[in-house]
Design a protein around this nucleic acid. Structure first.
Length: 497
RNA sequence: GGGCCCGUAGGUUAGCUUGGUCUAUACUUGACGGCUGGGGGCCGUCAGACUCCGGUUCAAAUCCGGACGGGCCCA
């Protein structure tokens, strides 16, 4: 593409990802970072619409799988936290000592959690007797009400979710969508009659993840996190990571199996058919605005963003060309827009009084997947010129626009899927021995079945972090990279965000 | 947790070392008018900034201290 020395409105090349990413989120008008609080960006209309398009996919998955939407308060009184703290410190001690949590007696221990939350200690002029904090996640709030909602086995499973803002006082460097202090957060919380039913829920969650990720053309690595990276209070954690262009992995979603650990802490019980009192088994499934960060990072190029059609805030932009020359142009443009809107496409007509070239740049930066140009010549020929953001132009007939556009968007979607899968595949290498050179920007698959101290050796010597066990093991036993003993366990190593 | 850098219009920036000539530079953006119009058009007119507080000084965008904000690197 011709670059008339104009440096593309200041977009750094994507090969310099650490400069490209923060620049593009502002240039494409997703966020405004000028709000004077660290890690709290302002969502601009275009960015917010993109997030809402992702949310809307999430909502329909929740609907499909029978989850019900709830909305819990932002503020949580401090005293509710005590139960959670006791649980977390108990589990932590059990892990440290390598014993089952039920063998330990509870003991008072301060969880490090308080440092990461925002506190409300005053209301008006009054100092609050019981301070409140802004939710960093909603277990505490929800599980205070669950015992009141669940009494009988017929109340189960309870499948709830909410999409809300959560808060975390980050002291590290912040990055739009990736590490922020106010987080746009999705959380599903479920309660079941037993461990097996909760496990089934985890399977359903993973199916939802896979459907969502395929809509967004995001290849993912699904890992069972090692114990030391398991969410506090969870029996196990399954995390979903995306490989960003610089080779760092970004955790975009996670599912936690809580067994009955939280239920015991919060007294969430039901009576079964036999009239016996049982503890519930619970799960959670979380995602965040990091999904948008991943979409931006993975699909964008030197010219700007590229949105996968299912979540593009604007799927087709229609550009009237040389409108003044013939009144037939704006008639054709209006009717094209109407027919596409009627079948549910998100359409924008750009009739600003600007040169067409400038409009093209604008919408390319913003990642609109398909552009339709309609000018006097096209009207005469009965065509619109369709330009794909992923490259290539085709005329499509005006009298069958809907099929033509659907076809074009399909091409774009599969092109994005192909590109991102290619990237993911070229990033992942097998690590055969600890002497092998670690290349920056690569992630590694490894046979590993060692102890915690072996894991430390592995992480120290590679400078990478263990993501955890893959969902499918090796079919043939392989020698563990540290201990040498034969194993089918397959794990990934990466630099994480 | 440890270390480093930075703060001038909406954006990018010159000026700061060696205080005065700053009534602060340029590009871009925005408004208005005209010519234009199939890949960043041209001309004209206009608008817009020294983060805040304190200190030094006859004099501070410039030097010193602090606050706030932004960014980077290493545990």
């Amino acid at each position: 593409m011709a670059d008339h020395g104009k440096a593309k409105r200041g977009i750094p090349p994507k090969s310099d990802f650490n400069a490209w990413y923060p620049a593009i989120v502002e240039i494409a008008e997703l966020v405004d970072k000028r709000y004077p609080i660290k890690g709290m960006d302002v969502w601009r209309p275009y960015g917010w619409k993109a997030m809402r398009c992702i949310d809307s996919l999430t909502h329909s998955e929740m609907e499909r799988t029978g989850h019900e939407e709830v909305r819990f308060p932002l503020l949580i009184p401090e005293d509710l936290l005590e139960k959670e703290n006791r649980l977390v410190s108990l589990l932590k001690r059990a892990r440290d000592e390598g014993v089952d949590p039920s063998e330990l007696r509870e003991q008072q221990e301060e969880a490090g959690f308080k440092k990461e939350v925002y506190w409300v200690r005053q209301a008006g002029e009054t100092d609050l007797d019981v301070p409140m904090f802004l939710r960093p996640t909603s277990e505490t709030a929800m599980y205070t009400l669950f015992p009141l909602w669940i009494r009988s086995h017929v109340d189960l499973p309870l499948k709830t979710y909410q999409i809300v803002n959560t808060f975390r006082y980050e002291t590290k460097q912040t990055r739009s969508f990736i590490r922020v202090r106010e987080i746009h957060f999705f959380e599903a919380h479920t309660a079941h009659v037993d461990e097996e039913c909760a496990t089934q829920q985890i399977h359903e969650d993973l199916e939802i993840v896979s459907r969502l990720m395929s809509n967004m053309s995001l290849p993912v690595i699904v890992s069972k996190r090692p114990v030391w990276d398991t969410f506090p209070g969870a029996w196990y954690t399954i995390a979903i990571d995306v490989i960003m262009p610089n080779g760092r992995t970004l955790q975009v979603a996670s599912c936690h199996h809580y067994k009955d650990q939280w239920a015991k802490a919060f007294d969430i019980k039901y009576q079964n058919e036999a009239g016996e009192t049982q503890y519930c088994h619970q799960t959670t499934y979380g995602m965040s605005e990091r999904l948008l960060g991943a979409v931006v990072g993975i699909h964008g190029d030197d010219n700007g963003l590229i949105f996968p059609p299912p979540i593009a805030p604007i799927q087709v932009v229609i550009i009237p060309v040389a409108q003044h020359k013939s009144p037939s142009v704006s008639i054709a443009v209006e009717s094209a827009a109407e027919s596409l809107r009627n079948v549910g496409y998100r359409i924008k007509i750009d009739d600003r009084d600007l040169r067409p070239g400038q409009k093209y740049w604008d919408w390319e930066i913003k990642g609109v997947p398909l552009r339709l140009e309609i000018g006097p010549r096209d009207v005469e020929n009965g065509n619109a010129l369709a330009a794909r953001r992923t490259g290539g132009k085709d005329p499509i007939p005006l009298d069958n626009l809907v099929d033509g556009v659907r076809n074009q968007l399909d091409i774009i979607h599969s092109e994005l899927t192909k590109r991102s899968n290619n990237h993911a595949n070229t990033c992942v290498n097998r690590l055969e021995s600890l002497d092998q050179e670690i290349i920056d920007g690569q992630i590694y698959e490894v046979a590993f079945d060692g102890s915690d101290s072996d894991a430390e050796v592995l992480e120290k010597s590679t400078g990478l972090t263990i993501l955890g066990d893959t969902m499918t093991e090796y079919s043939e036993p392989q020698p563990c990279i540290v201990s040498g003993k034969m194993t089918t366990r397959c794990q990934h190593l990466a630099r994480m965000y």
